[in-house]
């Protein structure tokens, strides 16, 4: 009985614990992201290199933001099951969404006075977990050129 508990109960307990805390933490993170996104909505981010020709540019500089995020054990377990049946792995989708939005926010927060960010580039790389080589965590880097206009009336 005790043997059974330690071989199956312990990993199962870990997964349940990870599911509860992981879900709470993720929800809190998404709420935080949404709040900060609202605060920085006035800074448009473009993936093109163009900016309005008519305005005079006061200053331009490169800004970047990066984050490493990982998913919890429960979602990793779900993804493992997904490997059997195939299809979209939703648990990884939310991980990458979290990472990208956080990286873009950090990039914007590096220079909040900017009026526009052009040529946004996003790079994603996975960090392997050594021997098992499972993709559990990912690094997202967002960078672009922030521009501040010279003669725009500021409120």
């Amino acid at each position: 009985m005790i043997g059974f508990l330690t071989t199956f109960g312990l990993p199962l307990g870990f997964i349940v614990l990870a599911m509860i805390t992981g879900t709470i933490l993720e929800r809190r993170h998404f709420r935080d992201i949404e709040r900060r996104e609202k605060a920085l909505r006035h800074v448009p981010v473009l993936t093109t290199r163009q900016y309005p020709d008519a305005v005079r540019v006061l200053e331009a500089r490169m800004v970047s933001g990066a984050v490493v995020v990982s998913i919890d054990h429960f979602k990793r377990f779900l993804a493992m099951l997904r490997n059997v049946f195939g299809g979209e792995v939703r648990s990884y989708c939310s991980l990458l969404d979290r990472g990208r939005r956080e990286a873009i926010l950090r990039m914007k927060e590096q220079w909040p006075q900017a009026e526009l960010i052009v040529n946004l580039r996003i790079e994603t790389s996975s960090i392997s977990q050594g021997r098992r080589k499972t993709i559990g965590s990912t690094e997202v880097l967002a960078y672009g050129t922030a521009i501040r206009y010279a003669d725009i009336p500021r409120e």
């Binding site: 614990l17 990870a18 990066a66 990982s70 054990h73 960090i127």
Partner: peptide, 15 residues
């Protein structure tokens, strides 16, 4: 941190 997921601050700083 991998158990519960979330940001791995040590790696973020390192990179």
């Amino acid at each position: 941190k991998n158990i519960v997921g979330g940001e791995l601050k040590g790696y973020t700083e390192l990179l």
